[in-house]
Simulated scan of single mutants.
Amino acid sequence: MVHNENRLRMIIICGMFAAITAVLSQLVIPIPLVPITGQTLAVGLTATILGSKYGAISMICYMLLGAVGLPVFAEAKGGLGVIIGPTGGYIISFFIAAFVIGFILEKTSFNIAMAFIANIIGMIITLTIGTIQLKYVADLTWSAALAGGVYPFIIVGLIKAFLASWIGISVRKRLIQAKLLRGTTKQSAA
């Protein structure tokens, strides 16, 4: 019975984080080719709080909601066309980045410093996969793909990685204290 309650709780929490990602996706600064959005902040928060498995599940849920046409992607877009379009690689990368961020934290320690490192690695994963798809789908040169898909995101990505780390670790601690989330043996006091 307790196992089923925990499973149901985690399914609900994954759905909530998919919804949080949809909301943060609407925070958009339009620039040519790929807009700056709150999506990657949501990915980092989700993975930092939930860990690898549930972070990845949340991002898969988010991607599936958008794939079926719900307007959850940036600028209230949805549909499979967005995922296979020029910016779809960023969306596809979210579940991979979330898994890696959570995995790093689970294997090291849930503290702000490790979360920052993990979120930077997640940012690199997202920018790499996103830029590769942008280059090939939009038929760009590598220099044009990097100029439109990486360079504008480096500074803002570092800021979002720090915010995801700081906020994520704080929220995670509170959710564990409230017994809404289970901690790990590598939980840090930092």
Rank of each mutant, 00 (worst) to 15 (best):
F73T: 11
W142K: 08
F17N: 15
I132G: 06
I167K: 06
L146S: 11
G38K: 02
I101S: 03
P30W: 01
K160M: 10
I92P: 05
D139M: 11
G85T: 10
Y136C: 08
A74L: 09
I101N: 03
I31K: 02
S52D: 14
L45E: 04
I120V: 15
A18G: 11
A115N: 05
G88L: 00
A115L: 05
G15E: 02
G66C: 07
T126G: 10
I124K: 02
T184P: 07
K186N: 15
T21C: 13
A113F: 13
N4W: 00
S58R: 07
I57G: 11
I176A: 00
G81M: 05
T108F: 04
I91Y: 00
F103Y: 14
T87K: 11
P30E: 08
A189H: 09
A178T: 11
K160Y: 06
C14Y: 01
L158N: 07
I29V: 15
T184K: 14
G122K: 04
L134P: 03
M1N: 12
P71L: 07
T87D: 05
V100P: 06
A19G: 13
I154M: 10
I154A: 06
I96D: 00
M123Q: 15
T108G: 03
I104L: 13
S109Q: 15
Q26A: 01
L80D: 03
A19V: 15
I104K: 10
I112S: 07
I11E: 08
A47M: 09
T46Q: 10
Q133F: 02
I169A: 12
T185H: 10
A178L: 14
G38W: 03
G69P: 14
L45T: 12
I124L: 14
A161V: 03
I121N: 02
G130V: 10
M16A: 13
V2F: 06
L134T: 03
I176G: 02
V82P: 07
L105V: 15
G122I: 07
P86R: 14
F116G: 09
G183L: 06
L27K: 05
N6I: 12
I176Q: 00
A19M: 10
G66Q: 07
G149C: 05
A190M: 11
H3W: 03
K179N: 14
V28A: 12
A74S: 15
P86A: 14
K107S: 09
S58W: 05
L180P: 04
Y151W: 13
F116K: 09
Y90W: 00
A22T: 01
A22D: 00
A67L: 12
L8I: 15
N119T: 07
T128Q: 01
